[in-house]
Nucleic acid binder design. Structure first.
Length: 115
DNA sequence: CTGATGACGGTGC
DNA sequence: GGCACCGCCATCA
């Protein structure tokens, strides 16, 4: 599976996040296994607005929307998550112990050479 | 090829 | 628990 760039593979992992769940940048990086959390952030920053990647399900380690916050996109991310049942506390944070993604099944990783 | 550009996270105080 | 540093790395012009 080297037909796609590293960014493409990062997006592939993000597509595995189920509705109503969120993952952190570091978690995505750990699954892909060839980059740091920051690189995942860079990959998301490169996305277009018409992408099919559910980028809104990715938040930082604190369960907060990191995005160029304050902007309209931050509002959209929160709106999309709430529409999927994810709740935010008074500090705009998501309870990762409740909505955090457990990660892809091991057989998925094997199928994608990420094991 | 060189330099600029970013959606982060761990550590130490 | 918060804040300041620093490390990290693929893309693109």
């Amino acid at each position: 599976m080297k037909t796609h760039s590293l960014y493409e593979r990062i997006y592939e992992v993000i597509r595995q996040i189920p509705v109503g769940r969120v993952a952190t940048y570091g978690q995505i990086a750990a699954i892909v296994g060839e980059c740091g959390a920051r690189t995942v952030g860079y990959a998301l920053a490169a996305l277009r607005s018409d992408t099919s990647v559910p980028w809104h399900r990715v938040v930082n380690r604190q369960g907060k929307i990191s995005l160029r916050a304050h902007g309209s996109e931050g509002q959209e991310q929160r709106a999309r998550l709430e529409a999927e049942g994810v709740t935010f506390d008074s500090d705009h944070r998501i309870d990762l112990s409740q909505f955090g993604w457990v990660g892809p099944k091991s057989d998925w990783r094997v199928a994608h050479g990420m094991i």
